[in-house]
Design a protein around this nucleic acid. Structure first.
Length: 895
RNA sequence: GGGCGAUUAACUCAGCGGUCAGAGUGCCUCCUUUACAAGGAGGAAGUCGGGGGUUCGAUUCCCUCAUCGCCUACCA
């Protein structure tokens, strides 16, 4: 295949993906140990954002790495029906296009619309994951509302029901008056708002009327809720109100008599020190109400209008009622101060309407018994968080876990599998109970199913096993559960992660306890922020579209950039130009591969690790193979430890710095020279290093490496499977070669010094590109003399003389590298000031270094207590520095 | 109010008890040499947020303060 000079991913990404699918796709092989990842199912309404792209990249790196390591690797994807979000999307569309509400259509017809929408748009985000290169087993793609999930949801619900963990009760829930549904605490956001703080006066029962009645003054931001007040709380230590504790107040408008109670949680210095208690519409008051056994009064209809409990205000919207209540209190002289007040208001995530806490009949799940094993899971080490600190977040939530309100007044979702007889006796059932059929317990006819649906998380908490076929103990359940790795965003640690762990322990009870935890590792990935450090959000319109970036730079570049930028779990500020780093790297690999390929052809190759290879191998070959050996081991170990950033960095440096900057440059002359006896082994080394490097890079940049792999196979006439299905490099024949690395280091230091001095002068100032090098140290001198051609080529020299001692030529530029001196002769009238400055600066730095070391070595405590190796190291370094300083000083005085 | 994280080069970030503190970008100088100019060679650039402490030794560990961010919480 002809490779373009520039890396153009758009040319091949789609084709490569097709090839992957054609080769059998990403279905895990039937044998071998398994490794499973469950993708957090994105909302069907979702569009890929940077967080998804990062998380998709992480999971794909892991699964490809495991696949190459011989695991039967399953990455299962799917989407979440996302109750409120999806229903809202379809409702909005319905209204925009037909001016109809869901009630106009009726439940069944509306649900058909939602399914239509899902069929049309529901795979969009998974297509986007595919563009990223995600190697999910698409044959096993799931949806949280498909029949097998429904079966699992019912099974889990009925089991909890049978254990007495499901209960129905009048409880305070967050009510969305626009969507007319309860929403969980997790679906609420708090927005700062400027409101008024009103003081209301409640007359004390039996106090003299007329001009000087006695009042208790309370403060509130929601005066209309006073209609539902059933008490007033004061702090028992409050001198202002103490004497009224136990007295009754008369609630204006309603005339209800309500007690003054003593409650230590009332702040003395906020408002008036007296708190109205509205158990029906305030979470804190609800708690207080329970404590003091106060009646609960519900003031609101489902749409937020006041019901008959609102007395004269019944039928008004809550906004109107607020205005009216205040007005009429004022007229009665019962309104105290009104002050400006800034506070946070709870708003529904979906509808953005103000949340009303409201008492409502809901289904709940008792969480405490479920939480216990989930807590134990982290304590026993069965579950590990990465970064570790998230363990605490997880535990804090579980230890203080509150019962889970699982009913939602929506249509889109799993309808609660509870049926009632005519007396309203509920029963949960795995199978539908048709109307008229006998109630399994009371034997009376069933009259209706509960109209509510379950919270979305009541299906997604079953994701790790329901997607495999549970409650049936299918071969997939047996084989792929429990999973090994979960990667997700921090904000769903409670919503999803903790609940999956609970579900695993609760429902996978055919397994022993130590095999029930649904995943071994929970990786909490970084949050991607915009360049100013704000969250990327639709409302701010500050998001960077990953697909746009893929179009521009390629999926590999997007993946590599994200991994290079995100150090495990640490938030990352992102700007579009950051993707250039990944692109440049991809381009570099691409071109390095092109270079290798164009030097292969039909030329002879010798495997550098073979006996024949060892006869003709040269220093640079040994060196790059040693570096390869090192990076292979490091990357393997880092990926096993899920240290993606470290692994990507190590590969970046190996490919760019070691392979491209040094090895390719050194080896060029051997490849172009005619009949160089060391050329075949150079080619062998090139193809070995490229092969291994492509394989090591494959999990990170799957598309590009696959194309280059195919080209390499073609050029070498190799028959090899797709790189995706190849084995992870095993390091066969490779070993660390300390000697080669040390000798190359000497060459690199010298080349660097020559380039330095070269670049201090212009072409006109140099008589010729000739350097004289003084290397008094024999081992160094031998290495350099043996590789003088390499030095000459890399330092762009025409001539190079290396000797033990060389007198400094007149009018020459000097560089000092360790114990080496480099001289480049210059023309007669060249100003050497610039060169002297460099030497002087360097000398100063070395002098400071020596002073610092002397201070350490002069410190008795250091010499006695520090690690002997450290002391020895300091001494060695001192000797080297002294040598260098001498050379620097000599050359400074000469010049 | 509690908890967590961050503060290192102009910018974005690594490092995290002991080699004169690193990368990418940007900046300066030079180079069209046949893998790559989205490249190559070289260079400048940092009292590692402030203050204490532990230690022979602190950017690294502890305390504290400051600033920014996130999560949590019943100040009505």
């Amino acid at each position: 295949m002809e490779l373009s000079t520039r890396y153009t991913p758009a040319d091949f990404e789609a084709k490569v993906y097709t090839d992957w699918l054609a080769s059998g796709g990403f279905t895990p092989k039937a044998d071998g140990p398994t490794f499973t990842i469950m993708m957090p199912p994105p909302n069907v309404t979702g569009v890929l954002h940077m967080g998804h792209a990062l998380n998709g990249t992480i999971q794909d790196i892991v699964i490809r790495h495991k696949r190459m390591n011989g695991f039967s690797a399953l990455w299962l994807a799917g989407t979440d029906h996302a109750g409120i979000a999806t229903q809202a999307v379809v409702e909005r569309k319905l209204y925009e296009e037909e001016k109809k509400t869901r009630n106009d259509l009726g439940r069944e017809a509306f649900l058909e619309r939602v399914w239509d929408w899902k069929e049309k748009h529901g795979s969009y985000i998974l297509e986007q994951f595919r563009r990223l290169g995600s190697s999910c087993d698409w044959e096993r793609t799931r949806f949280t509302m498909e029949p097998m999930m429904t079966k699992a949801v019912r099974e889990s619900f009925v089991r909890l029901w049978e254990k007495g963990l499901v209960y129905r009760g009048a409880r305070l829930v967050n009510w969305d008056c626009v969507l007319e549904t309860a929403v969980s605490d997790d679906e609420i956001e708090y927005v700062p708002r400027k409101d008024k703080l009103y003081q209301l006066r409640y007359p004390v029962k039996g106090s003299p009327g007329g001009s000087n009645p006695e009042f208790v003054t309370v403060a509130t931001t929601r005066p209309e809720t006073m209609l539902g007040d059933t008490g007033v709380a004061v702090n028992p230590a409050d001198e202002r109100w103490k004497h009224l504790i136990g007295k009754m107040l008369v609630l204006p408008f309603i005339g209800r008599e309500i007690p003054v109670v003593a409650d230590e949680t009332v702040e003395l210095d906020f408002g008036t020190g007296a708190v109205k208690i509205t158990p029906g519409h305030d979470p804190a008051d609800y708690e207080r109400g329970l404590r003091f056994k106060l009646p609960i009064i519900n003031l609101l209809e489902k749409d937020g209008k006041l019901n008959k409990e609102g007395g004269p205000f019944a039928g008004m919207t809550r906004e109107k009622a607020r205005i009216e209540v205040v007005k009429q209190l004022e007229e009665l002289g019962l309104l105290g101060e009104v002050t400006d007040y800034a506070h946070n208001v709870a708003v529904s995530d979906r509808s953005k309407s103000v949340i009303e806490p409201i008492v409502s009949e809901q289904w709940f799940v008792k969480m405490e018994p479920l939480a216990r094993p989930a807590i134990e899971a982290v304590k026993s080490g069965a579950l590990k968080f990465r970064p570790e600190r998230w363990t605490k977040v997880y535990l804090d939530w579980l230890v203080n876990v509150r019962d889970w309100c699982i009913s939602r007044q929506l249509w889109w979702g799993h309808q609660i599998p509870v049926w009632y007889d005519a007396d309203g006796v509920p029963v949960a059932s795995r199978e539908d109970l048709p109307i008229g059929s006998p109630h399994p317990v009371t034997k009376k006819p069933i009259v209706r199913q509960d109209p509510d649906v379950l919270d979305t998380w009541a299906s997604s908490w079953l994701w790790p096993f329901a997607t495999l076929g549970w409650p049936n103990l299918t071969p997939d359940v047996e084989r792929y559960y429990p999973t090994q790795f979960l990667s997700t965003a921090r904000e769903i640690i409670y919503l999803w992660v903790a609940r999956m762990v609970m579900a695993g322990y609760e429902f996978m009870d055919h397994l022993p306890m130590d095999q029930r935890c649904p995943f071994e590792v929970c990786n909490v990935h970084a949050t991607v922020l915009d360049s100013k450090g704000r969250r990327m959000s639709k409302s701010l319109n500050n998001g960077i579209d990953p697909i746009e970036m893929i179009d521009k730079y390629g999926a590999d570049a997007v993946r590599y950039s994200l991994v290079l930028l995100t150090k495990e779990g640490q938030d990352v500020k992102l700007a579009t130009d950051r993707f250039e780093q990944g692109y440049r790297f991809s381009n570099k690999v691409w071109n390095a591969a092109r270079f290798v390929l164009m030097n292969m052809g039909s030329h002879a190759q010798v495997d550098p690790t073979s006996a024949a290879g060892r006869n003709t191998i040269k220093l640079e070959d040994r060196w790059i193979l040693s570096r390869l050996s090192r990076v292979r081991a490091e990357v393997s170990q880092m990926l096993d430890a899920y240290a993606f950033n470290d692994a990507a960095m190590a590969l970046y440096q190996f490919v760019w710095n070691d392979f491209c900057d040094w090895y390719l440059e050194i080896v060029k002359s051997r490849l172009t020279a005619e009949n160089d006896p060391s050329a075949p082994v150079a080619r062998g080394t090139l193809s070995r290093v490229l092969s291994d490097a492509l394989a090591l890079l494959h999990p990170f940049t799957p598309y590009m490496t696959e194309v280059l792999w195919a080209s390499l196979n073609e050029t070498l006439g190799r028959t090899q499977p797709l790189l995706m299905n190849c084995r992870w490099p095993d390091g066969r024949g490779l070993a660390l070669d300390e000697e080669a690395e040390l000798q190359m280091q000497t060459i690199q230091d010298l080349v660097h010094a020559v380039r330095q001095v070269r670049n201090l002068t212009t072409a006109g100032e140099r008589q010729m590109l000739a350097a004289k090098i003084a290397a008094p140290n024999k081992p160094e001198r031998d290495v350099l003399q043996r590789h003088v051609d390499t030095v000459r080529a890399l330092a762009f020299l025409e001539a190079c003389e290396i000797d033990a001692h060389i007198a400094r030529p007149p009018n020459s530029a000097v560089a000092v590298a360790g114990g080496l001196e480099v001289f480049v002769a210059l023309g007669a009238n060249v100003d050497l000031g610039k060169l002297k400055d460099v030497l002087a600066r360097r000398a100063e730095k070395v002098r400071q270094g020596i002073t610092a070391i002397d201070a350490k070595l002069g410190n008795v405590a250091f010499v006695e207590r520090a690690d002997p190796e450290v002391v020895e190291g300091e001494k060695t370094r001192r000797t080297e520095m002294v040598t260098e300083l001498k050379l620097l000083e000599r050359n400074l005085s000469d010049a």
